[in-house]
Design a protein around this nucleic acid. Structure first.
Lengths: 196, 196, 196, 196
DNA sequence: CTCTAAACGAGACGGTACGTCCAGTCTTCGG
DNA sequence: CCGAAGACTGGACGTACCGTCTCGTTTAGAG
């Protein structure tokens, strides 16, 4: 960090938020979720601990906000003209996200986010719901194009690709080989949906 | 102090191991993996902390051993005569295991076990490999019976059921509804393998 | 929010001063000097902290002002016609003051007021000088009446009664038994001054 | 306690105690009682905070023990052959003690030690009782020598010298001029006791 | 009576210290 | 003489205050 905040006017509101988010992501990258402490985040952001706790009662909230602040939900659904390439693009984007701070955060949050239902819901909404709605849109288009039959689309089948991708990431860590993604698409996702 | 009024004789070796394992599982159930500390496990087992560290350098090892001690790998592969019921039985057994201490442990270990590769490998072997080899045996028999074609069997397809089951457990927690398992089998696993 | 629903009008100047003094004395009574904080005084007085600091740079000043605002120096010197009863009245009044907020304040200020000489002087002037000048007036009258000899009056002797009273209060706390005051007067103060 | 460096195991506790006491006295000298913190004492002694709190629940206890550890009650009562010189010696010794860490500690403890009666009693025993018993021994000898009359000795008169000395120290701080001590002895203590 | 500058309440800010809990190491002593 | 018990250093926890500051709002007093 370059600037010395003692000389500068005190940061408030969004400016302070941004500094804390950056410090959180830096710590996440250096120490991992398990090694991330409020103390060090505060020190790194040159902020008081109270300023952190005033905004986020636990590191769970802090990390979730920090990750999704710099990595907002990518709203653009790939539209390449065929089911296979759409799914391939979607899973590659998911793999890219997992390889960054969002992945490290997700892994750590799994063991803490389920403590109360409100947190768990927020966690699922951000990490999980994304993939589902993406696949819904992709398959909707494929049905429209006549590529697949609507009856082949079920919730479990929409989740299968994400589940395989995440299982690999969670148990083997990054990076995720592209060959794996291709296999998931060609051996699992496409066959499941194109079955007559 | 002159006399030691402790009722129990000092435990050593396996007797102490067993007490520590039990304390570990109790703490896992009460506080979860994130809330489990060596300190409390030692206190609960009426043991010194050094006795824990001498045996297990980290809580990762301790928890893995404790879980594996009471929940040894079920070596019996279901053999019901049909692919569908075999897979159903296997996933139901996996779901049962996840709903107990092994599930809580797995969730927590995800964020710590990847730190060094030796640990990660041991972790994968116990938690992950299990499902894979089970499915290999089940599909081998189905091929023998002529129920499915050998060419339909690929690593990704063998993993798909486990991945969907675990994704649900990790993000939603226990209990795992049996309806979900049936859907996974009938909409994903069986179609993938019986496709001609 | 658009409207301000506070019932009370904003206080300024003396009205605010008075409210702060009252809050200070209340906190002094509840938490003692050691437990008194600017934060709580401000909250209790429904004032901003800056309003306190604008007037009193430290809690030392605040407490001294608050105490002597409600307990102004009693200017009336007892005049009962005899040395013994004059001194008795003076010490009883001193004991009464010590048993209230002034006593609690004095006890706490001892450990902080000496930091810089200006504060120390102000502190001595208000807490200490009082007794001395009272005794000077009392003995002056006794000399005039021919009750005692002027040569018997020395600074140490004038202080002896106050010193014994305060030593008891500081080390034993309130209340101060009246019997003690009588003993101080009859066994120490009067004998010292009436010695021929 | 006399330690034997050859065989007796120098308990980790006692060596640590000594280091903590020294750090406490250093902090007392540098920052004063009001500026003394458990945090800094621990850091200075290279000890963990828990090691401090395990022994002394509050800084009151810590400071009292530390001061008492290096400044044990001087058991030798001055015996110079005359009341005046005995008292002079006793008050000079008291003044010497007050000018060191014991004085700084006493000043600070006044505002906190009275919180509960057990602490207050311990505080009085150590700081206050000392002077009283010394004076009792001195006057007992003077009575034996026929220098003074036993009927002249009362608790208040025994306390008068200490009270004047302490009042000066508490309100004016160190150093205590020797001239003051001489005045206290010649104008107050001796006249009070030698009165016929 | 209006306008403006000061005073005000509220509370966020960067910090320090609190007293507690736990990690991982090291010492003591009992079996 | 090994190993159980637990004291040790160190560090993070989440909270309370410190003294400073910014933000709007009120209010007194000058024009």
């Amino acid at each position: 960090m370059v600037t010395d905040h003692r000389k500068l006017p005190r940061r408030r509101g969004e400016a302070l938020n941004a500094a804390i988010f950056q410090a959180t992501l830096d710590e996440l990258a250096e120490a991992g979720y398990a090694g991330l402490t409020m103390e060090r985040v505060a020190e790194r952001a040159r902020a008081g601990k109270a300023s952190l706790y005033r905004r986020w009662p636990t590191r769970i909230e802090l990390v979730m906000d920090a990750v999704y602040h710099v990595l907002p939900v990518p709203s653009s659904v790939p539209d390449t003209g065929s089911l296979r390439t759409d799914v391939l693009a979607a899973l590659r984007e998911a793999a890219r996200l997992l390889s960054g701070p969002a992945g490290e955060a997700m892994r750590g949050l799994l063991s803490e986010a389920l403590a109360d239902e409100a947190r768990a819901a927020a966690f699922r909404r951000r990490s999980h719901g994304l993939g589902r709605s993406l696949m819904q849109e992709i398959t909707r288009r494929a049905v429209e194009r006549g590529e697949i039959d609507a009856s082949a689309v079920t919730p479990r089948r929409l989740d299968a690709g994400q589940a395989l991708l995440r299982q690999h990431f969670l148990f083997a860590g990054p990076p995720i080989p592209d060959e794996l993604i291709v296999q998931i698409v060609d051996e699992v996702v496409v066959p499941l949906l194109t079955r007559r």
